[in-house]
């Protein structure tokens, strides 16, 4: 009985740490396509590697040793 009460208290305390979604409702607009569908033929890995390479263009320590 005591264990059950402790478990209930613990569950109640943990519930306070829960993060609730901030949105009032769900998105009600049109569905958007994935960014890799139009120009990368749905190849997500290829799109990601392109972006990763592009990202490193911002790092001059990689561009100019």
């Amino acid at each position: 009985m005591r264990t059950l009460a402790l478990m209930l208290i613990a569950a109640g305390l943990i519930a306070g740490c829960d993060e609730k979604p901030q949105t009032v409702g769900d998105y009600r607009g049109k569905t958007d396509a994935k960014p890799y569908e139009a120009n990368f033929g749905g190849d997500k890995a290829k799109w990601e590697s392109t972006l990763r390479a592009r990202n490193q263009n911002q790092n001059e320590y990689k561009r100019v040793p």
Binding site: Q22, T23, V24, G25, D26, Y27, R28, G29, K30, D32, K34, P35
Partner: peptide, 23 residues
């Protein structure tokens, strides 16, 4: 996103917050 009364905002898989102007 939280305050929009017409729920026109959405977040893409990449974490970009976008919205539907028609909404």
């Amino acid at each position: 996103m939280a305050v929009c009364p017409t729920d026109c905002f959405y977040r893409t898989d990449e974490g970009v917050v976008l919205h539907d102007k028609d909404q």
